[in-house]
Computed example of a mutant assay.
Amino acid sequence: MPSLAQSLTALLVSEHAALLRRTTRIVGSLTAAEDVVQRLWLKVQQIEDAAVRNPRAYLFRLASNLAIDHRRAEAARQRIQARAETYLWGPIGAASAEASVIDRQALARVLDALEVLPDPGRTMFRLNRFEDKRIVDIAALYGVSTTTVENHLRRVLAQLRIARETS
């Protein structure tokens, strides 16, 4: 006597087109429905023998449940992705005029502070941040160690941070 898994697998093969139609209606896409039917096949392989009065109805109920789970998971994934994009990038065009003015003022303070910083820190910072020069190359240019360049950059960044935060 064939096991339940074997008979459900045979039924799945014979009802494949009907299962695809059912799951496509639920998930809204043939590609996603094919994934659901594939997961159904895997699930059927793991079913242990049990008393099932109507194997066809049981198989279609499993398919529907997997399709609903897929739809819910996809909706949750889209919500999470939208939230993550909002946190990362913020709503596009949502910056208020006041926030834009505050940001421009902070940028002006930072640029003014950069102009009055003593050399060689100011020049090292410009080379590193604006001209993409590596710290090793800047150290060779000035004839100093990379640690010295890093210390200059650290001091410049600290002074610029203070200038940015001062209102």
Rank of each mutant, 00 (worst) to 15 (best):
D119N: 10
G28L: 04
T23N: 07
N54P: 04
D69N: 07
I92K: 13
A140G: 02
R61F: 06
R83Y: 08
I80S: 06
V116I: 14
R161T: 10
S96C: 06
L88K: 02
Q38K: 13
A97D: 13
V13C: 04
V101R: 15
R164N: 10
H16K: 08
L107K: 14
A10T: 10
A139Q: 04
S100Q: 15
L107D: 11
F130K: 11
S3I: 04
N151W: 01
L111A: 14
D69F: 00
R122T: 04
I162F: 10
A113Q: 02
A113T: 00
L11G: 00
A50D: 13
S96R: 01
I92R: 15
F130T: 11
Q78W: 03
L12W: 02
K133A: 11
A99S: 13
I92S: 15
V136C: 09
L30G: 15
I135D: 09
R129Q: 14
K43S: 14
L4Q: 06
A95V: 14
M1C: 09
T31W: 01
L59C: 04
P120C: 00
L30R: 14
P120W: 00
A63G: 02
R56Q: 15
S14A: 12
G93S: 09
E115F: 04
L11I: 01
V136H: 08
S100C: 13
A5Y: 08
G93F: 02
F125H: 11
L88V: 05
E98D: 14
V37D: 02
L11D: 00
V44W: 06
A94E: 14
S167L: 12
A73Y: 05
R122C: 06
T166P: 07
E15R: 07
A33T: 00
R21F: 07
L157C: 08
P120L: 00
R56F: 06
E74A: 15
A108M: 07
T24G: 05
D103L: 13
S167M: 12
I26Y: 03
A163T: 02
L114W: 05
E48F: 00
R122W: 04
L30F: 10
L30K: 13
M124I: 07
R22P: 03
N54D: 15
V52W: 01
G143W: 06
L30P: 07
P55Y: 01
S29H: 03
R126H: 10
D49K: 00
R71Y: 09
T9D: 15
A76P: 05
R53F: 14
L62K: 01
A73W: 03
M1I: 05
M1P: 07
R129C: 12
R77T: 12
R53P: 09
L117R: 03
M1G: 13
Q6N: 07
R134C: 04
